[in-house]
Design a protein around this nucleic acid. Structure first.
Lengths: 261, 261
DNA sequence: GAACACTGTTAGAGCAATCTAACAGAGGTT
DNA sequence: AACCTCTGTTAGATTGCTCTAACAGTGTTC
């Protein structure tokens, strides 16, 4: 069904948004009015008029000036698919990742237009997996929250725990070492940023994401911070921070630039 | 550092892309040329000239007509942050979700501009968690791949397995029932779309994502498909499909529309 | 040193999406 | 009936990003 008319249909993000909004309104009220669309989208009415004419041209809505708006079959299909992605993403962010609902809502708006069907499928699979498979489900999320919501990383519980992060911090993991003990000149890929919940976002934003290739430039000395090279630029870390960041060491002679070809 | 100049700096996605590209090129070659930027971005040279002037105005690149391009400190900071998000996202999609590298690369381009710092932090935390915590790590990803890469959902292994999905299909889970046995008129939220890998994306795209509220309209009969209402529209499912979709039943009297307020 | 090839800029156009200002119906008040 | 308010449209301007066409340097080659 609906194979022929799809041909030259390149829908912009904006127009997809309008479709989604029209669907949501049509489920909430008997008739969809320009006023409401404008309010929900945060634009002025003439902008909505403009959008409706574009959508009508593409046969996605039934629209005649001063009449009520209705989605066509094809328009409804697209709208439902966008709305579904939105709802799913928002739920994923809140329920799995633990993002604040308001932030999640906003992010979902931005992300929903950029997920390929394959990625969406795999992400849905992940959610199904953690929610229905017993061997992970029993405390997957609980543990996740526990590990990443503690204000202080090195609580007593961690100190004697069997968690790989904690073993690594005690020097017991052969593959993972802290940035503090990585020798100058050596490289590693970030595995765990084990600092306080407050500091995390700052470091994350400077590029210390899992998988990032970093190079130890110089160790922290008496009152000088450690220098770490990330993406060709030096970053300063306190001794405590360096100790709390775990990396998988890359053997010398396999240096990477951190940028794909 | 860099607090004052940020004030009125609203960088568009496009300009962020240019910064990222300039960074990547500057790590690969001694001097960055307009030609290369244009090729990598897939646009014509005059477009690059235009972008460079915008970026120079905002003090993010050093650029004089016909000279080589260089990132300023601030420009480099932004570029590294975007590139970091990109690399991380792409790795997440490929290594955790198992998305095809080419698709992941493309999706990462679209997603990288829409992640709030909080979401990025939480997503990074998830990756750190599944990669460094032993109780999940030992076969979290292996099992995930196993459950969601089997061409046929009801393999022999599944039939006697302890997986919640399989127990539910055998009617042994009190909270999860299949769409096949959900009575007409009742509602549920999708928990698991347990069909072949090939069919999944199709159903996912029609809105059968985990968490979606569905209503059973009519059961499948002799040669008529089951009717399921999703987002206010009816969807047809074969009897086999209906049996393979598991939902958490919503008690009557708590009906939901599937759309947020 | 004249011709050619390559890189990059200027000029001018076009599309998507937004805005403001002004106008046009439709309904209810007085 | 005249007026007011609310909703929606038309007209015209603006911004961001892209294009093509034409022009301008900078070498290389014969």
């Amino acid at each position: 069904m609906s194979t022929k008319t799809d041909a030259g249909l390149h829908l912009t993000e904006t127009l997809e948004d309008y479709l989604e909004i029209i669907l949501m309104l049509s489920l909430q009220m008997p008739t969809v009015r320009v006023r409401d669309i404008a309010r929900l989208k945060g634009v002025r009415m003439p902008t909505v008029t403009w959008a409706l004419r574009r959508l009508a041209e593409k046969q996605l809505v039934l629209y005649a000036a001063r009449e009520y708006v209705e989605l066509t079959a094809r328009g409804g299909e697209i709208a439902r698919s966008v709305a579904g992605r939105h709802r799913f993403l928002s739920a994923f962010l809140v329920k799995i990742l633990g993002v604040a609902p308001k932030v999640a809502e906003k992010d979902a708006c931005g992300l929903e237009h950029h997920l390929s069907p394959q990625t969406l499928d795999r992400l849905a699979a992940l959610v199904e997996y953690v929610e229905t498979c017993p061997e992970v489900q029993k405390d997957f999320l609980t543990r996740f929250r526990y590990c990443f919501t503690q204000p202080k990383p090195s609580s007593a519980a961690c100190r004697r725990s069997d968690c790989r992060t904690d073993r690594a911090r005690r020097g017991e993991d052969p593959d993972l070492i802290s940035l503090g003990t990585l020798p100058a000149g050596a490289q590693g890929t970030v595995a765990r940023v084990h600092v306080s919940v407050k500091r995390r976002p700052m470091l994350i934003r400077s590029g210390l994401l899992p998988g990032t290739v970093v190079e130890k430039v110089s160790p922290p000395s008496l009152r000088r911070p450690a220098l770490i090279r990330v993406d060709g630029q030096d970053l300063k870390l306190t001794a405590a921070e360096a100790r709390s960041i775990l990396v998988a060491r890359i053997p010398d002679g396999e240096e990477k630039t951190g940028v794909g070809e």
